[in-house]
Design a protein around this nucleic acid. Sequence first.
DNA 1: GACATAAAATACCGGATAGTATAAAAATGA
DNA 2: TCATTTTTATACTATCCGGTATTTTATGTC
Lengths: 201, 201
Amino acid sequence: MSDADKGPARGRPRTMNAEQVLDVAMTAYWHSDPADVSVNAICQMAGISKPSLYREFGSEDGLSRAALDRYADQVLSEMFVILHAGAGLRQTLATLIDFASDDPRMETGCLFYKMRAGKHRLGTDTRARVEEIDAAGQAAYAAFLQAARDAGDWPDGLSVEAGAKYLGEQIALAITQRASGEDPARIREMLTLALSVFTRP
Amino acid sequence: MSDADKGPARGRPRTMNAEQVLDVAMTAYWHSDPADVSVNAICQMAGISKPSLYREFGSEDGLSRAALDRYADQVLSEMFVILHAGAGLRQTLATLIDFASDDPRMETGCLFYKMRAGKHRLGTDTRARVEEIDAAGQAAYAAFLQAARDAGDWPDGLSVEAGAKYLGEQIALAITQRASGEDPARIREMLTLALSVFTRP
DNA sequence: GACATAAAATACCGGATAGTATAAAAATGA
DNA sequence: TCATTTTTATACTATCCGGTATTTTATGTC
C-alpha cells in the first residue's frame, strides 16, 4: 500500500508533521530531562499548537510513550544488536564499553535511563513501556551471558541473572555519568574496572 | 553561654519549632524526593504557616540547604566515621557493604544522592552544598584508599583517584537501588562483586 | 458561490507552585 | 489601660502546568 490511500483530503490540509514533532519531543526529552520538558515547550519548539499535538498523541503520556518508542527503535536497538551479534565475551564487553564511554550519541545520556530514573513521574503508558524495555534488556544481557557461560568463559560462584543485572546497571551508570559531563576517559576506566569481574584469569 | 540570653521575649511567643520543622522537611525530602515535596506540603506536615517558614529559612533554597546540612550531620557523618576508623581495606569495605546493603536508614535511599541526581533542580545554595559534600566524600574515599595502598594492599594499574571515584559511585548505585525497592540481598551481591576488584588475590 | 469537513489558532479552565502583603493575636513594658 | 513588639493566620499575587472549548481558516464537493 502506498501513501495514496491516506484519505480524500477533505477539510483543511494538515501542516503538522507527526514524525517531526516526535523527533523534536524525543530530542528534547533526551537532551535535557523528560520531567523538565513541558508540553507547551514542545509545541513551541515544533512550531505547532497544543490542540494539534493532543489530537495526534492524546495526552502527555501518549506523547512521551511515542517518543520512547521512537528512541527504542532508533537508538536502543543498537545495544541489542551488540548483544546478539554473537561475538565472544571479551569482544562484546569491549564493544559495550566503547558504546557507553565514547559513542557521541550518549554524550547527553540515554533517554531510557533518564525515564527509568524518574519512573514515578511518568504517565502509566510510558511507565509500562519503560518496564517492558527494562525487562527486555535484562533478558538480552542474560542470554548473552548464558552463551558465554556455555562456552566455559565464566567466573565461579556467579549466577547468570545476577551477572546480567550487574552488567546492565554498570552500563546504565556509565551512560548516566556521560550525561553529567564526566570525562569519558574516566568513565571508560571505571566501566572497564567494573566489567573486569567477568574476565578474570 | 546558655539559652537564657535568647532575648527578653517581647512580642507574641513563637509556636514554631525550627528543629522540628527541619526534621519534617529532611524526612520528607529524604523519604520521597526533594523535587516532589513542595513548601506548601512541608508547612502542612509541620503544622505551621508559610510566612513562618519563610521568616526562618528565607526561601525554599534556604530550607532545602538547611535540611541537607542536618542530614550531613545526622546521617552522612556515619559514612565518614567508617572511612576514618582505620580498619583494614577488606574490613572497611565489608562495613561499607553492610551499610549500603542492609542499614535500615538507607531503605528509602540517601537524601544526598537524591539531591545530587537532581542537582539541576536545586537552588544555588543547596546545589553548592551538594558539590561541597561530594568533594568531601571523594576526598575521604581517596584518603582511605591511599592508606590501603601505603599498606601494600592494592591492585596493580589503578590510580587512587580513579579507585576513589569508582568506590563512591558503586556505593551510590547500591543505595539508590535500595530506594527503588531492589532486594537487599541482590544489592549486596552486586556491590560485593563490584568492590571485589579492590581485593583480588 | 454555498456548504460540509477537518485542521489550526486563540483563548481559556482549574489546579499547583513559590513567594508576599496584610491583618489579627499574644505577649511585654509603661 | 494602652502602646509596642513580634509572631501567627489568612488571603492574595503571578506564573506555570496539563488539558480543552471555541472560533477561524483552508480545503473538496455540490
